[in-house]
């Protein structure tokens, strides 16, 4: 009894509180380290890029080097904008989505319906591997398939195809996972009403899991928005707005690369990056909100 009492009498609480505080401080410090890159990136982009952002920046094409040199020499803001890149990105992303969403959703449904079967397992594994394929390789493939054989030259279509392959695995996975989360009883309830199976899928399962599907699609889009490597090999770039899928087309990340290679255009790098970053952030926040509302 004596020893227990002396043990209890010893006051360790001060030490424990100190330890607690040290651990907490460590956690806060490491959290700050984790979020600091994104804060530093965004603040750098805002500081360096905001001066260029104006209506002109959104609706005018990229200036040529001569205009840029003149403006820089006179200490003015570089005229023109990146409308050709914005339009090109929207065009290629839309076409990529139009290609990838139906295929991805249908494949996801197939995987959900055939759990544990050989073909489904194989498809799932292949789709996972596809997700790991470097984007430059997808660009090369699209170059071989589309640039060399379909459009006979660099084209927006080739860019879209490489982007859609990149989106595909994300959509497949999110469709399957979303459907798996829907309770089986809901499916049975619809079947018990004598509803044919395809209508159960289309009218009950998909609407119920719609927010999940949408989230997967938005995250897929936000991933391809910033892709540059495959576009260098496929869409190439264009200094004017192009809506022809068979012609070379610009994109925001392509322009950033071009600006980087032209010492007179350096200022435009920051504003273009800021715009691209903002688009991706908005998509991410929207999809996070959708997930939050679903819970």
């Amino acid at each position: 009894m004596e020893s227990i009492n002396t043990f209890l009498d010893q006051d360790h609480s001060a030490r424990r509180i100190l330890k607690d505080k040290l651990v907490l401080a460590g956690i806060i410090a490491l959290s700050l380290v984790t979020i600091s890159p994104i804060i530093l990136i965004i603040s750098k982009l805002v500081v360096k890029g905001y001066r260029q952002i104006s209506l002109d920046f959104l609706i005018k094409n990229t200036p040529d080097s001569y205009e840029a040199i003149t403006a820089v020499a006179n200490g003015e803001i570089i005229p023109g904008g990146i409308a050709n890149g914005i339009v090109g990105t929207l065009l290629m992303v839309s076409v990529a989505s139009a290609l990838a969403i139906p295929i991805g959703v249908l494949t996801g449904i197939y995987l959900y319906e055939n759990q544990g079967k050989f073909m489904a397992n194989l498809t799932r594994s292949v789709s996972d591997i596809l997700q790991g394929v470097p984007s430059i390789v997808l660009g090369l493939i699209s170059y071989l398939w589309i640039v060399k054989h379909v459009t006979m030259g660099y084209s927006a279509l080739a860019g879209s195809v490489s982007m859609s392959i990149m989106m595909l695995p994300m959509i497949v996975r999110s469709t399957e996972e979303t459907l798996k989360m829907i309770p089986q009883t809901l499916k049975e309830a619809a079947l018990a009403l004598g509803v044919p199976y395809h209508k159960v899928l289309l009218r009950v399962m998909i609407p119920t899991g719609f927010s999940g599907l949408l989230t997967g699609i938005l995250l897929g889009i936000s991933r391809i928005l910033g892709e540059t490597a495959p576009l260098l090999l496929t869409a190439l770039g264009s200094s004017i707005i192009n809506l022809d899928m068979t012609k070379p087309t610009s994109a925001i990340p392509l322009l950033i690369w071009e600006f980087y290679n032209d010492p007179n255009m350096i200022d435009l790098i920051w504003s273009s990056s800021l715009l691209l970053m903002t688009m991706i952030l908005i998509l991410n926040i929207v999809s996070k909100q959708i997930i939050a509302n679903r819970r």
Partner: peptide, 21 residues
């Protein structure tokens, strides 16, 4: 056909399962 049968035999499940959407 199962579809015809199920329209003649309604079913109610253990847990209420209204369509959430």
């Amino acid at each position: 056909p199962a579809i015809k049968l199920r329209r003649q035999m309604g079913m109610v499940f253990q847990r209420p399962n209204p369509f959430p959407t």
